[in-house]
Design a binder for these strands. Structure first.
Lengths: 346, 346
DNA sequence: CTTAATAATTGGAACGTTCCAATATCGTCA
DNA sequence: TGACGATATTGGAACGTTCCAATTATTAAG
């Protein structure tokens, strides 16, 4: 069954032209006569020719592959990010090489090495936790365009596209304060990441400007997952002076917090205000619909891809550090019932 | 900055050996002397050599890439599937080429073509809706090993790995019946898929063996997503004779159903029994924890990858059609409160 | 010592494409 | 008619690797 490869030479012979002409047709050159082009295309279809990109890559040193490496594909935020990247990369005639590191930097190293071997012409990376500038140095020196998304790395010397985490957290907490909350927790996330640090900064700044103290007891880290959210809220409810609202590290945590609340017969939105971060697809349809800081993962993927494509086209570009806007979308999980209750209490 | 490529010849020159020897070292051949190997490896590191897979692929017609194409990466079921595939494929020294079709068969065609051009040595496909045997024919004829997952395609002539959808649905509905439910709905999913058809068959068979009628009014299709679940349950609650329980097409729909129930002040698990399908990660931690038919997406990905790898190694293998076991995992969403209430009613 | 066997190493051809410079074909204008 | 430009086409070299057959160095056996 596995017949031997049909090559450009076979096509040439069958169509009665030279291999150069066939090559020209393949790249859609305008140099070739309409009639010849039609003839060649017909033969290509007839013989079931499959273009060999390895050969082409070898000759011209550019590959039409872009790589994207994410730290946790299981988190829908990153899945959506990948979908966004795919969309624009695809329509630019590139193909996407996606790898998941599962937060393991060893795995990340392998994956990046493999992508380089395959000659990707650019890389979009959402780095695993603990990745340092030194880890990326060889890659960066090789001159391959790289765009960091979601998590920036200091002095890595590459472009980055992150969202304005501080501003988002600030807006969210201000909103809670305006609704009368005084005991506001920050739940979930690992403290050793830059994203955590930035969101935390916004949280603290909002509290400070309202003259509230940001006691560390109200900051409770956990895995940035649904399960992590459950444990974080449980811990929060053990405090003698309980919070009445929480800003969560991300939407997954927020969903977990809602779950944990319900497990204690508390209704999120009514008995306790919760705000998430990211605005993943489910945030809108969940019940109660999640109030969250919208980061638009898909849009972020698209913009990262556009940025990368621009750099690829430009050859060598100055690294840009873009921080994307973010907006608080108010839905039900910090609902008006809370507002009333919280005001009575305070 | 973008210095020119270091090739195997540069290494050879610097190490004082021939390019053939360097090549041997690269592939870990036992033919080469220990001292030489060490020397060459040192030079490789020193010059920052990057292996060129395009060139290698060109020479030997096998590529160490396996492709995986999924129909909806946004659905965590498929994201987990991909993670499972990645794990085993990786440890076998292959790398994964992942593409998302978003259920568009046009896109699927492009993506598969692109993968063939890159010389993938095998393909795992979760086909887009409406894919037919004819769509895969050219691929299959080329002799590239293909494993279909999740959705099978009749007479495609390739291996497939699907789960026992009928048995899962059967067990789930039997369980509901044993708990006293008589009006059981089937919610969500598109009716034109084989998966829907199989789950539906299990649903009907269970009802029939209990002597219950499976009126079509209780079967309500929708998009297989969280949002789809919300609309499906809304529609179900409009019926004059309302159901007291539902088997959902998948977990996403089940979550949506829970959301929809809460929106009507009904507590899933207590006031209405809901069972999902797939057992995605969140099913366990959700509140109430979702009773669901476990398909183990990650495990499924692993097994699909193993099957594919086996076929790649064997050259040409007989297509196998594996249907994986499935088990009902009982958690809270069809809780005991329902049992009591339902019994009183009946 | 010679010879045979073994262990290491090697040059060159091949893989399927693209690119370059060169050539062929044609109509047009002086 | 000849020269010219424009339009199409072409052969061959090159890309970086692997593989084969051939060679050289080393050891063991006689």
């Amino acid at each position: 069954m596995a017949k031997e490869r049909v090559t450009v030479i076979d096509i040439a012979r069958a169509a009665g032209v030279s291999k150069s002409t066939v090559s020209l047709v393949l790249q859609g050159s305008s140099l070739v006569n309409e009639a010849t082009r039609a003839k060649v295309n017909a033969v290509i279809r007839e013989l079931g020719y499959v273009y060999n990109r390895s050969a082409a890559n070898l000759r011209q040193a550019k590959s039409k592959i872009i790589g994207i490496v994410v730290n946790d594909l299981t988190n829908s935020f990153f899945a959506e990010l990948a979908v966004g990247v795919d969309a624009v990369v695809q329509s630019a005639g590139f193909v996407q090489f996606l790898a998941n590191t599962g937060e393991k930097s060893e795995r990340q190293r392998e994956v990046i090495a493999s992508m380089r071997e395959h000659g990707v012409s650019g890389l979009i990376i959402s780095p695993a936790r603990g990745t340092e500038a030194a880890d990326l140095a060889p890659l960066v020196e090789s001159g391959i365009p790289v765009v960091l998304v979601v998590r920036d790395i200091a002095r890595a010397g590459v472009s980055s596209l992150i969202s304005d985490n501080r501003a988002g957290a600030l807006a969210a907490v201000r909103h809670l304060i305006a609704r009368g909350h005084r005991r506001i927790a920050f739940l979930g996330g690992f403290a050793d990441t830059a994203v955590f640090e930035a969101r935390m900064r916004g949280y603290r700044d909002a509290l400070r400007e309202a003259g509230l103290n940001a006691g560390d007891d109200l900051v409770i880290g956990s895995a940035p997952s649904r399960a992590g959210g459950v444990t974080a809220i449980e811990q929060a409810m053990m405090l003698e002076d309980r919070p009445t609202a929480a800003l969560c590290f991300n939407d997954a945590v927020a969903f977990g917090v809602c779950d944990g609340l319900r497990a204690r017969r508390l209704e999120p939105g009514a008995d306790f205000a919760v705000i998430g971060f990211d605005d993943v697809i489910e945030a809108k349809t969940a019940v109660p619909a999640l109030t969250t800081v919208s980061v638009d993962p898909q849009g972020m993927g698209e913009r990262a891809a556009e940025l990368l494509l621009k750099q690829i086209k430009a050859g060598r570009a100055e690294p840009e550090a873009i921080v994307g806007p973010v907006r608080l979308v108010i839905r039900q999980s910090c609902g008006s019932a809370v507002e009333r209750r919280a005001k009575e209490v305070s």
